[in-house]
Design a binder for these strands. Structure first.
Length: 329
DNA sequence: AAATTTCACAACCGCCGGCGC
DNA sequence: GGCGCCGGCGGTTGTGAAATT
């Protein structure tokens, strides 16, 4: 494993790059003078870094690297510490709650990974960025649309995110006191995932998010309304609602399997229309761009074969609705 | 079983802004 | 105000593991 392919960098690869500024020259200088290592960190290097920071604290990364005797750039040390070695860093198993947060915050702020990461304690911008690229963009690719396109963003907002909320609540209800989310009490579902202290209001469908660096003293609500769609949002503070799950569960639970009939889906769609109209989504099933007003091409859906029965959690959130949603363009 | 492809994620790169001198 | 250093950020790449052919 930790084979040192940490190539001792001499003049490597710089020839073709556009020698932009001092960063590169400085780095090259340092590398030539100190034979700086690159690539995967070894256990010994990790321990050295951990021990040094334990004794002297972090910061001043370039001098830290030198003082600790690490043949790494300060940047490399900083990155290794922040993304991997820090005691409070959490890796892997991005929860449903975290996925919901990521989707919402990304729709709001775009690729502001560090800003998004501030709302996911223990998660690094790097991990969120990787999650986005490997999971979300993968689905955009499967659905043959651009991840930044309006229809994909609306698909996330009006289909995927409500589904996530439903799953979070279903999981909480099923698991009860043993789950990562406590059973609903007083119409509130507390998502108490060690680091994530979010709250879903059962009756209103609100998700309350903790503000960063405020120790849960205030919160932020997620929005799923057209008024607050990705194009409209601008404020860091937001409050709005998605449809209460208790009323829309059936919609999201449409049986996505191959035996579903056209009539089933038509009924389902009508139901969805009715439900949404109850919550201010308009006369018919609407999105800001009106995708829901179109007909349905089951043949195309069958051909696309998006009835997923496996894969990770996020995979399961994509189904016939998404394809249909996107087919409307 | 071997080869190939895909996935996940750690690490690097270049750019930029803040800050001290 | 200019300069250099440092650190943060977002984009990209490299690579081992897992899945597929």
């Amino acid at each position: 494993m930790d084979q040192v392919k940490g190539v001792i960098c001499n003049q490597q690869q710089t020839t073709s790059s556009s020698s932009s500024g001092e960063d590169q020259e400085d780095t090259m200088m340092m590398m030539m003078m100190m034979e700086l290592r690159r690539g995967p960190w070894t256990v010994e290097e990790d321990l050295t870094l951990i021990n040094y920071i334990a004794l002297h604290g972090e910061g001043r990364w370039n001098s830290l690297a030198r003082s600790a005797g690490l043949q790494r750039t300060g940047k490399s040390c900083r990155l290794r510490w922040l993304n991997y070695l820090r005691p409070d860093v959490r890796r892997g198993n991005i929860t449903l709650e975290e996925q919901l947060l990521i989707l919402e915050l990304h729709s709001r702020w775009g690729n502001r990974w560090s800003k998004i990461a501030q709302h996911l304690p223990g998660r690094t911008d790097n991990e969120i960025k990787n999650y986005w690229r490997t999971r979300v963009q993968k689905h955009a690719k499967q659905l043959k649309c651009d991840v930044n396109s309006k229809q994909f963003q609306d698909t996330m907002r009006y289909l995927w995110m409500p589904r996530l909320v439903e799953r979070i609540q279903a999981a909480a209800a099923a698991a009860g006191a043993n789950s990562s989310a406590t059973a609903p009490t007083n119409n509130h579902l507390i998502i108490n995932n060690n680091d994530i202290n979010s709250m879903v209001d059962i009756s209103s469908g609100q998700v309350m998010l903790p503000q960063p660096n405020m120790a849960g003293s205030s919160s932020t609500s997620l929005s799923f309304t057209p008024e607050n769609s990705s194009t409209a949002a601008s404020s860091d503070s937001f409050t709005a609602q998605f449809s209460p799950v208790s009323d829309l569960t059936d919609c999201y639970n449409y049986p996505v399997n191959h035996s579903s009939s056209n009539q089933d889906y038509t009924n389902y769609q009508a139901n969805y229309n009715n439900q949404l109209s109850c919550y201010g989504y308009g006369e018919t099933l609407t999105s800001p761009t009106g995708y829901f007003n179109q007909g349905l091409d089951f043949q195309v859906m069958e051909q696309n074969n998006f009835w997923l029965d496996g894969g990770d959690v996020s995979d399961n959130l994509w189904n016939v609705e998404d394809v249909w949603f996107l087919q409307q363009h």
